[in-house]
């Protein structure tokens, strides 16, 4: 509708008049919650080099074992991704959302922190136009949401079981370094998890 200056000003004034937030939380309580959140982030930041070193160690071990043992049921590359995920999750705690983006650890929040993250997923996303490959690995429970807001990666990963017993993974991520958006919905049958396949998704 065509809106006059007077009508728009009146609308803006109504919004301005209503801009008093309900409730009056004490700044001290707010400050305490903020400081607690910062303590957790500092702890993760300090642990990140240790986790990366541990991941590198596991990768080395995985490659060594892979060349010397009988052909495994789960491919070595996937076992390495899963080992990194398990180590990082155990190290950082169940409330932390652990995501590896091209071998770089990004941490966020798991909304189902009290439920063990039994679903471990390793993906390779391939851009059909550019051939650009992105490796993504994460772990979560059925019905879980991993929320990320880091300098490398932001957005959400949802893991929702469907009526057929499959796991629907909804990716809504943005690679903050490259600006690339990673948006997709993938359906994993439970056979995938038993066989531990690296799942490759080609998108355009």
């Amino acid at each position: 509708m065509k809106i006059t200056d007077a009508t728009l000003d009146a609308l803006l004034q109504r919004k301005a008049a209503g801009s008093v937030a309900p409730g009056t939380p004490k700044p001290e309580a707010f400050a305490a919650a903020f400081q607690n959140a910062l303590r957790q982030r500092r702890r993760r930041a300090l642990l990140r080099p240790l986790t990366a070193a541990a991941a590198l160690f596991l990768l080395s071990i995985g490659l060594f074992v892979g060349t010397r043992s009988a052909p495994p049921r789960v491919p070595a590359q996937v076992r390495t991704e899963f080992a990194k995920l398990t180590f990082a999750q155990n190290f950082l705690g169940p409330e932390v959302g652990v995501v590896f983006l091209n071998d770089e650890l990004a941490t966020g929040e798991r909304l189902l922190a009290g439920v063990p993250p039994r679903n471990r997923i390793a993906l390779e996303l391939v851009d059909r136009r550019t051939g650009f490959r992105t490796a993504l690995a994460f772990a979560g429970a059925d019905g879980d949401t991993i929320v990320l807001d880091t300098p490398q990666l932001s957005g959400e990963i949802l893991l929702l079981p469907d009526d057929a017993g499959n796991l629907v993974v909804d990716l809504e991520l943005q690679n903050q370094t490259t600006g690339q958006e990673l948006r997709d919905v993938l359906v994993f049958d439970r056979e995938h998890f038993r066989n531990g396949r690296m799942y490759q998704r080609i998108f355009s």
Binding site: G18, V20, A31, F34
Partner: peptide, 16 residues
């Protein structure tokens, strides 16, 4: 923390 102490109502009103 100082911003929070002095301006929490302002920040909350923006979000509201």
């Amino acid at each position: 923390l100082e911003v929070l102490r002095l301006h929490l109502p302002y920040l909350r009103s923006i979000a509201a």
